[in-house]
Structure formats: C-alpha cells, structure tokens
Amino acid sequence: MTYFTLSLTLLFVLIPLILAHVLKLNIEKDIIIATSRSIVQLLLVGYLLQFIFDQNDPLFMILMVGLIIFAATHNARKKGVNIKGITWKLILTYTTIEILTQSILIGLNITPATPQYVIPISGMVVGNAMVLSILFLNRLTDEVEDKQSQIELILSLGGSPKQAIHRQLITSIKASTVPTIETQKTMGLVQLPGMMSGQIIAGADPIQAVQFQLLILFILLTTAIITSVMLGYLSYPALFTEKMQLNDNLK
C-alpha cells in the first residue's frame, strides 16, 4: 500500500466525523484525537520494528519487550493505585508470563527466537494480560468495597486476611478470565481473529494461519489465568494492614 492509498482511507474517518457533526453527538474531537494518535503511534511502532529487524541484535529485541511491559504497567497501574507496590507487582506478573511464553515457544522450537516472532507475540500476550489485570483490579476494588462487611466479619471471627478475602479474590479472578474464555468459544464464528486475518490478507495459507492462531489462543488462555492468579495473590496482602485490618484507604 502506498501513502497515497493510505491517505484515501481517511475517507473512513470523514464519514463518522460528518455523522457525529450532523447528529450533534459531540464526539468529533475524540474521533480526531483517536485518528491522529493511531496514525502517529502505529507509524512510530512500524519504523521502530523496522529498525529492530534491521539491527538483528537480540539486545534491541529485549529492549522492545521491556518497553511493551513498561507501557502495559503504566496503563494498568492507574486501576490499582491504592494497592501498595502495584507497579512492581504488575511488572513481575508481566515479566513472568513473558518469560514463560517465550521459553515454551522457543524452547520447544515452535517459533524461532527472532524479533519478527518474539515482539508481536509479546505484544499480544502482554496486551491481553494488561486488559486482564485492569479487569481484575477493577473487580477486586469493587468487590472489596461491596463486601467490606463480610470481609470484616471473617476478620472479627479470627480469620486471616487471606481467609477474609478468599471469596472476593476468587470472584475477581473468575470474572477477569471469563472474557478471554468466552471470546474463544465464538472464535471464527463471528469474526476472524485480527492476527489470522492479517496473515491471510498478507497471503498466508489459511490452515497455517489457523494453526498459528490456535497457538496464540492457547497461550492467551494460559497467560490469562496466570496473570489474574498471580496478580491476585501478590496484591491482596496490600489490602490489609499489619494488624490484619482492612486498609482504610479502600473504604
């Protein structure tokens, strides 16, 4: 695709803009911001990837993965600011699933250890983990606020913080992983997964694209569960004081 044809696609932005204006939806500004940001961000990433691919140096690949983890942490931590140490807890979780995924993929010779594979897969895995941790942290905060009296009841009967929050922790872990599992159920029926579509459009053999997509799905399933369980068990102690009280800033 040339930049000229790409600029023609801006027509697709014009349509919502006109509609928004006519119907007074008051979202014109957001549409423009969203469009400009996606252009700038994606082009930057494109050039960055090109640069890294050209270097053929694993150091740049690792730096890029680090950048992905950093960006995901930066995004998700806003949802957990009242959980002490949430930044390093997120970094630890994302790093763990990244190392786990790549060791399986590279270790078992499923994908080669080249930036072309490592970086996009890391993006998908860590991106999914980021969405999941945001869901998880939102849900946990809501649950604790909602069920504060039940949590304090268990504490007042002599239960440990872990016992007191067990039910809320499990509910939040479940709630955050359900979307990943549900999407997989309808996968291919309603929409083709983005990566697979991309490969097919780029001319790949559909069966090979499907195989690759399945691999990604299974990885996402594993990392989804690991993310919320790990984040859950790392974060719950911060909801309590050393005297085993529910932390005041959560009430």
Partner: peptide, 15 residues
C-alpha cells in the same frame, strides 16, 4: 496476635 485476640473478644454487629 490480632487473630487470637478476636477469637477471645467476640463481637456481634447490628447488621
């Protein structure tokens, strides 16, 4: 230990 104390000092709440 708060857990021990809370077993010895039982509380019943309005709710």
């Amino acid at each position: 230990n708060p857990m021990t104390l809370r077993k010895k000092v039982g509380v019943v709440l309005q709710e």
